Structures are given as structure tokens and as C-alpha cells.
Computed example of a mutant assay.
Amino acid sequence: MCIFVRKEYGRLLLSVQCFGELAIPLPYQRFLLTVKTTIGVICLRTHRVFLTWKSQLSVFLCKLTANYDKDMAAQEMIGFKNSLKLLGQQIIENRIAAAQAAIDNAQEAANNESKSSAGDKYETGRAMGHLEKDMYTRQQAENLKELAQLKTVKADMHYTTARTGALIVCEAQYFFIAAGLGKQQVDDRQVFFLSPLSPLARVLLNKKAGDTFIFNKQEMVIIEIY
């Protein structure tokens, strides 16, 4: 039984008789070279690997493909997290634009009131305009603060415990600890955007796959964390 390894576009491709061809990510190349202690004799000649002990070859391939599948799933979910971060930024930027438009409208309304009113009516209209403007200004400040915090979230990392930047996967819901944007429907996934300071995020802090928590009076089981 022999295995051939060749390079193509920066990847190692593992070709096994009767098994077909399997791409090996760079991190697993070192693993391939260390299996000689458990599988048998390896002779390297121009990226060609010869293995003995057929009985353990299938075990080796199962471990390799399992690690590869897990790594690919993690990379896919990291890409999904990055898309969630971009979606969150877009939502907040839309809120910022809406708040700025409301501030401008409130100011314009106050200016028009001052031109057309006099006496108590003028004072009341101006005060209401200022109150409305102040309300939207505070909202604007909160939106800007949340956007700045979201931009610091490291969504391109794979986490194994719940923390800021982690995506917690449950049976029917996803929880992304990054910004408090509530429930969002992303493709066919229901994603809850949580502020790192929210009560639920604090409950989830440092939990890992297999742990449970209560959400909407139901016990949720964490399937995986990315």
C-alpha cells in the first residue's frame, strides 16, 4: 500500500490507491511526517510517501480527514462571523444616518417655529424642538460608541469558549457576542447579536461546547463555539 503526495497551487494533495485524492492543509503536513512512530516506515523522496501496515492506514486517513473537516468547518464559520460583523456595522451605520437626519429635521423645525411663532407658543415649540434634538443626539452618541466597539471585535479568530467575538451555536439559534442589535435573520439562520455587557453575554461568558444556559425560559445546549 502506498501514498503519493504532490504539491499543487501551494497545497499538498494526498493520493491513495483505491481512496482517491485528498487535499491536505499546510498545518497537517507536519502531522503527516510524524506518523512514522505510529504507522510504520516512511521514506520521503520528492514528496512521495510510502507507508506500511495496512491495518493502521485507514485509522490514519480517518484522523486526517476528521481534522480536515473540522478545520474547514471552523474556517467556514469564521467567514460567517466576519459577514455578521459587517452586517452589524451596516445596521449601526444606518441607525447613525437616521439619527442624523432626525437631528437635522428637529433643528429645522425649531428654526421654522422661531420664524412663524411668538410669545408662549414660540417658547414651547422651541423647547420641544430642543428636547427632540437632544434625544436624537444622545442616540447618535450611543450608536457611534457601539460602532467603535464593534470595529474592535476580533471576528476572524476561532474561540473555544464564549467571549467577545465568539459565535455560540445552538440547535436553532446562533448567538454572536459583538453588539446589542437583537435578533437578525441571516439567510436561514436566526442570529442574536449580543452586547458584551448584556446579561445574557455575561451568563455565557467562558461556557464551552456541551454546556447549557437558560434563554427565554428554555434550556439551551451549546453545540459548538467558534
Rank of each mutant, 00 (worst) to 15 (best):
L14K: 04
Q17H: 03
I42V: 12
F31N: 03
L14H: 03
L26I: 06
Y9W: 06
C18V: 07
L12A: 13
V41P: 07
F31V: 12
I39F: 11
F31G: 02
P27V: 00
L33K: 11
V41G: 01
I39A: 05
R30H: 14
F31I: 13
L13F: 06
V16R: 08
P25Q: 04
R11D: 10
T37A: 06
L32I: 09
L26H: 04
L13S: 00
K36N: 10
K36G: 09
V41A: 00
L22P: 07
T38V: 15
R11A: 06
I39Y: 11
I39G: 04
I24F: 00
I42D: 05
V35Q: 04
Y28H: 12
T34G: 00
I24T: 01
I24N: 00
I42K: 05
L22G: 07
V35N: 00
L14E: 02
L22V: 15
I42A: 05
T38Y: 12
E8H: 08
S15A: 09
Q17L: 06
L13M: 03
E8F: 09
G10V: 14
C18N: 10
F19R: 10
L26S: 08
A23N: 06
L32F: 06
T38Q: 13
Y9T: 06
L26R: 03
L14S: 03
Y9M: 04
K36D: 02
L13N: 00
Q29H: 12
R11C: 09
C18Y: 11
P27Y: 00
L14D: 02
K36F: 09
I39L: 15
F19I: 10
Q29G: 01
L32D: 02
Y28L: 15
L33F: 09
V35W: 06
L22K: 06
I42W: 08
L32S: 02
L32V: 09
L12F: 15
V35E: 05
S15G: 08
T37M: 10
R30M: 11
L14P: 05
P25K: 05
S15L: 08
I24M: 01
V35C: 04
Q29E: 10
I24A: 01
V35I: 15
R30Y: 10
L33S: 12
T37Y: 08
A23E: 13
L14N: 03
V41L: 03
T38N: 10
Q29C: 02
Q17D: 05
Y28Q: 09
R11W: 13
T37R: 04
R30Q: 15
A23T: 08
L13K: 07
I39V: 13
Y28W: 14
G20N: 02
Q29F: 07
V16C: 08
L33Q: 10
I39D: 09
G40S: 11
G10F: 09
V35F: 04
Q17V: 13
L14I: 13
T37H: 07
T34F: 02
P25L: 04
G10H: 14
G40C: 15
T37N: 06
Y9P: 06
T34Y: 08
R11V: 08
L13I: 14
L33G: 00
E8R: 13
C18D: 02
L32H: 03
I42H: 07
L33P: 12
Y28F: 15
V16W: 14
L12D: 09
L26E: 10
I42G: 00
G40R: 13
L22R: 11
F31K: 07
L32W: 01
